[in-house]
Design a protein around this nucleic acid. Structure first.
Length: 287
DNA sequence: GTCCAGGTCTTCC
DNA sequence: GGAAGACATGGA
């Protein structure tokens, strides 16, 4: 491949707006020229175009595999959707309303840290906290002329040397001590995030939940959004509400019972199903 | 002003 | 083992 700052990644059924606003990532900004963010320390601008996604970065690239991995443009969405249960009108309706919604494949640390910051926060507030954290403590990355300054998500090493007061001033409240503790554990290699890729789901989940501030829901988010475990099924207030309403005649159920139901009902790509339901009920309410 | 947010931890029964 | 309260902060 010839070196270039620009590429068109061919893909069908990719709704970039839905994907970026579906509560998986918090550091991406929508601009007049497309979505702008940082992947593997590369500043990138993304725009939907006929037949795919056009990507623009600052330095010439010969290998775009880092971006293909992040966007998961090599995943065939029809094959995923075809594994969903037939005769589930709620899920079918969700898929129809946000066809093209995708799961991204994020950096584990950024995903873990972001979701540690997510507890009992609205998505708009999580975005604000993450933006402040990146601007104050992340390393600057090169951008194209005329664009706002951009910063990588701070590494575990960069956060581990901060104080709880530094972090609290980013408006993250009681979550500061959890983020700091996680950063110290990860930077000291007491928890090796890379090694989790090779573990079974349950073992990886257990390892993540050993971190303070990381319970079942946050662990499942990281397992799904960063490691790509296809059956990881985060149950938050929205999903719990929707599942109770749709499948249990309005009765509230414990998260553990809902996860067991999901494993049996939604099949090998239950995590994808969860993301469709989550995005559908949130956008429906807004409409 | 009140309620609630992509939860988790501690305390108490 | 499960319910209730604490925890920071800001949007709706």
């Amino acid at each position: 491949m010839l070196p270039s700052r620009e590429i068109k990644l061919p893909v069908a059924d990719y709704d970039l707006d839905a994907t970026m606003t579906s509560g998986q990532v918090f550091a991406w900004e929508q601009t007049s020229g497309g979505w702008v963010g940082v992947v593997n320390r590369h500043w990138v601008q993304l725009q939907c175009c006929p037949g795919g996604i056009r990507a623009l970065t600052t330095a010439q690239q010969t290998d775009w595999s880092w971006l293909v991995a992040f966007l998961q443009t090599d995943v065939n969405l029809s094959e995923i959707v075809s594994t969903f249960p037939e005769n589930d009108l709620h899920l079918s309706s969700a898929v129809r309303s946000c066809r093209g919604l995708r799961l991204l494949r994020q950096d584990p640390w950024e995903c873990l840290a972001s979701f540690i910051l997510s507890s009992t926060k609205q998505i708009v507030q999580i975005r604000q906290i993450v933006r402040t954290l990146c601007h104050r403590h992340g390393s600057p990355v090169e951008t194209l002329a005329g664009y706002e300054a951009a910063f990588a998500f701070p590494t575990a090493e960069e956060i581990a040397v901060l104080t709880e007061a530094n972090l609290r001033s980013c408006k993250m409240g009681f979550r500061a001590k959890y983020l700091l503790a996680a950063a110290k554990r990860v930077s000291a290699r007491e928890l090796n995030l890379e090694s989790l890729r090779h573990l079974p789901l349950a073992a990886a989940r257990e390892a993540l939940m050993d971190l303070p501030g990381v319970g079942e829901k946050i662990a499942d988010c990281v397992l799904l959004f960063a490691y790509g475990f296809p059956t990881a099924f985060p149950v938050d207030v929205w999903v719990a509400r929707a599942l109770g309403q749709f499948y249990f005649r309005g009765r509230r159920k414990q998260p553990e019972q809902l996860r067991r139901f999901a494993a049996g009902h939604f099949g090998p790509n239950a995590g994808y199903a969860q993301q469709y339901l989550f995005h559908h009920i949130r956008t429906q309410r807004a409409a």
